[in-house]
């Protein structure tokens, strides 16, 4: 029931309250909440959930492309900085929309500026760095990521990343001694989150039918982490 405003005092109070609410709304709108989930490739369900404003580190090109594929499938733009050996066909097979993909294969010394500029436009940015990344640079980029609601995938080491994905025990099927051809690959992906014990999952990247999926169907009710 709406309060009736019939005295000048009550009216002034109401205006005041509206002002307060407006400032709160605008403060909230300033930055997207850092924990807003982004769409993630179904093969990685249960292992990692992409979140806006976070950085992820991977050690394999296929995993990097799979992380790009999620937001790209849901209509976001993706960008890759410093990836001169981008496998476009493999990316397309994983579900990356190449029409909404931009590459900067050779950013030179300006990789940080370029990445920051691309964070403004893309939902997820893949960056491959040569050498160690200074924590200050990562911190600056993290602020930008939170503001823009984008995710960063680092191919290689990245200071203070939310989840670090590593691959183990890759094994290819379909290839013999001079016969057959590479057809499917099983590998174990480990997701390291802080100092917690890693989560493991065996994946087909790709499977016999050229789809990318977990070895066993994951339970639907994957636990959703609390808001940080």
């Amino acid at each position: 029931m709406a309060p009736r405003i019939d005295t000048p005092g009550a009216a002034a109070q109401a205006v005041d309250q509206i002002q307060q609410l407006r400032t709160r709304i605008s403060r909230l709108q300033e930055s997207t909440p850092p924990s807003m989930p982004l769409e993630t490739h179904p093969a990685l369900a249960g292992l990692v959930q992409l979140r806006a404003g976070a950085a992820y580190s991977v050690d394999s090109a296929t995993l990097a492309l799979a992380l790009l594929a999620g937001p790209s499938r849901s209509g976001g733009w993706c960008a890759a900085v410093g990836v001169a050996d981008f496998g476009a066909e493999a990316a397309a097979a994983l579900g990356v929309d190449l029409g909404r993909t931009v590459l900067v294969p050779d950013p030179g010394d300006q990789w940080l500026e370029v990445t920051a500029a691309l964070v403004d436009v893309a939902a997820v940015v893949l960056v491959r760095t040569t050498g160690r990344v200074a924590p200050q640079a990562a911190e600056k980029l993290a602020a930008r990521l939170r503001k823009r609601g984008a995710a960063l995938v680092a191919w290689g080491e990245w200071p203070r990343c939310e989840v670090r994905l590593t691959t183990r025990e890759p094994s290819w099927r379909g290839v013999g001694q001079g016969d057959g051809h590479l057809s499917s690959r099983r590998l174990v992906v480990e997701a390291h989150r802080g100092s917690a014990p890693p989560r493991r999952g065996a994946l087909w990247l790709p499977g016999e039918d050229q789809t990318y999926r977990p070895e066993r169907a994951v339970p639907v009710a994957a636990p959703v982490e609390g808001v940080a």
Binding site: W77, F86, A88, E89, A91, A92, L98, G99, T101, V102, L103, V104, P105, D106, P107, G108, Q110, E113, V114, A117, L118, D120, V121
Partner: peptide
């Protein structure tokens, strides 16, 4: 998106026009 065009144009301004590419099959 206008925004995408502008953002990418900025990167092109930094590195030159041919530094930003799109993959095509």
């Amino acid at each position: 998106d206008e925004r995408v065009q502008r953002g990418i144009a900025r990167v092109q301004g930094m590195l030159g026009h041919e530094a930003v590419v799109q993959p095509v099959l």
